[in-house]
């Protein structure tokens, strides 16, 4: 199982702050997880579309699409940050 967190505008658009997911055995990186979530359709397909700027973190570190994910990880998807 992994924990997937959605922040800010993504959380609102997806209607979910976080969820627990069992990773399919063939799923190994962030890009694949994003594609899996996108396949839910609706807001998921729209918000996580390839053209959208979506940042991600694995275990609280900024991560690229090819970042490896594994059981027990906390993965977060969010819009580009706007603090400061």
């Amino acid at each position: 199982m992994v924990t997937v967190v959605y922040c800010a505008r993504l959380r609102e658009a997806l209607g979910k702050a976080s969820e627990q997911m069992a990773l399919p055995s063939n799923l190994c990186d962030l890009a694949a997880l994003r594609a899996l979530l996108r396949s839910r359709g609706g807001a998921w397909a729209k918000e996580l579309a390839d053209g959208n700027l979506v940042r991600a973190a694995v275990n609280h570190e900024m991560a690229h699409a090819d970042a490896i994910i594994k059981d027990g990880d906390e993965i977060a998807f969010f819009p580009p940050v706007t603090g400061g």
């Binding site: 973190a57 819009p79 580009p80 706007t82």
Partner: peptide, 25 residues
């Protein structure tokens, strides 16, 4: 400050007379 603005996970949502909106990066 420059790194915080682009790397620290904060997001701003503004309330304006037209309603609420998330600030774009």
């Amino acid at each position: 400050m420059d790194y915080l603005k682009t790397r620290a996970p904060f997001w701003k949502k503004e309330s304006t007379p037209q309603g609420e909106r998330w600030v774009e990066a």
